[in-house]
């Protein structure tokens, strides 16, 4: 059987594309599917008691699992194919092995499916979890998946819990707010606290265990459309890292890409704490991005990837387009310290952050 394998990365060939020594090119995964690449993620795959960090790539109609051959090479080990509805995004679920979820749809999510890594490498195993008008989805700790669906008058916010075999163990609903929930974020270190952002510039807070809607906090209209990439609680306040909508772009010399806001959940009062801006001379606005621990990465409209150390408060690395191709998405690996950067034509570059 012809095995599709990664190209060996040649870091010296890419040195000129980096202006920071914080990122080291490890490998390049080349998808041969020919369709547009849409997302990348990492997951754990356990077999015969051995747990390996694998990479998941998604093109429009194909999702592929790449298994490590050694520290620098990955082999495409398995693919799942979709015929009617294209893949919109990978939805990683923390705390699970051998399972990843995907959202399918054209402009909006129409289906959520669980993809199971087959033991015999042959059978295409996928389970339809939910279908309909799905607005938002996120994987949560403790093997949970949350989604919002339906119309505003009949909105459902549902939490599913996965069993060991990938089936659904339990489902329960959270009290819906009177606004459409557009994104979710778990509060770091608080497994029973869930945040949602709404289309009306509100942050809603749930108790995941009881399903109670604890609070709806209206934030400034200027945050409209922002996604919460990270949330944590400290000294009685909630801190949220949002991408900056940049509505006032051009009016200011500062070019904010991410921002930190603080919310007092007791009073609903909130305030902007910090802006994470582009270095002087850099152009572009936030297209998409990801935050892990205290590092934030964003693909900019200029095609460059920029990385911030949220503790230092400034941009620490810039990754311009490689081979004249703009970056289209970027993700932090949830299983190791790799940065996964993708281009539309299916190239995925794996960088190690040093």
């Amino acid at each position: 059987r012809l095995v599709e394998q990664t190209e060996m990365a040649d870091p010296s060939a890419c040195d000129d594309s980096l202006n920071s020594h914080d990122l080291q090119l490890v490998s390049k995964l080349k998808s041969a599917s020919g369709s547009c690449s849409v997302d990348v993620s990492a997951m754990w795959w356990e077999r015969a008691g051995v747990k390996e960090s694998c990479i998941i790539t998604a093109c429009e109609y194909v999702v592929a699992l790449w298994k490590p051959l050694d520290a620098k090479r990955w082999k495409k080990n398995y693919t799942w194919h979709f015929k009617e509805i294209p893949v919109l995004q990978i939805v990683p679920v923390p705390d699970v092995c051998n399972l990843v979820c995907v959202a399918l749809g054209n402009l909006e999510i129409r289906e959520l499916r669980a993809l199971l890594c087959p033991c015999d490498d042959k059978s295409d195993k996928q389970v339809l979890l939910k279908s309909g008008n799905i607005e938002a989805v996120a994987g949560l700790t403790k093997r949970r998946l949350v989604s919002s669906s339906g119309t505003l008058d009949d909105q459902q916010v549902e939490v599913m819990t996965f069993a060991e075999d990938g089936g659904i163990n339990e489902k329960h609903f959270l009290m819906p707010p009177e606004e459409a929930v557009t994104t979710f974020a778990e509060v770091q270190g608080m497994e029973e606290t869930l945040l949602g952002t709404t289309g009306m510039s509100s942050i809603v807070i749930w108790n995941l265990k009881t399903g109670q809607l604890l609070k709806k906090v209206h934030i400034d209209e200027s945050y409209h459309g922002s996604v919460c990439h990270k949330a944590y609680s400290d000294m009685g306040l909630l801190f949220l890292v949002l991408n900056h909508p940049c509505a006032k772009d051009g009016q200011s010399l500062e070019k904010p890409v991410f921002q930190l806001i603080a919310i007092n959940p007791k009073t609903s009062l909130n305030v902007g704490v910090m802006l994470y801006c582009l270095p002087h001379g850099q152009a572009g606005r936030f297209l998409e991005g990801d935050v892990k621990d205290h590092f934030a990465a964003a693909v900019l409209t200029s095609g460059t990837i920029a990385i911030w150390d949220l503790l230092l408060g400034h941009c620490t690395a810039l990754l311009p387009p490689v081979s004249d191709q703009n970056w289209s998405f970027v993700k932090w690996s949830s299983t190791d310290s790799h940065l996964l950067a993708g281009q539309k034509d299916g190239n995925i570059f794996v960088y190690r952050c040093t």
């Binding site: 108790n207 609070k215 609680s233 009685g236 306040l237 909130n270 704490v273």
Partner: peptide, 23 residues
């Protein structure tokens, strides 16, 4: 910014809001 402008702070906000919110 000044986070002291955000009103009285409670370290147990999650438990307090859970006891106040409708079930």
């Amino acid at each position: 910014c000044n986070v002291t402008d955000l009103g009285p702070i409670s370290l147990n906000w999650f438990e307090e809001l859970s006891s106040e919110a409708p079930p």
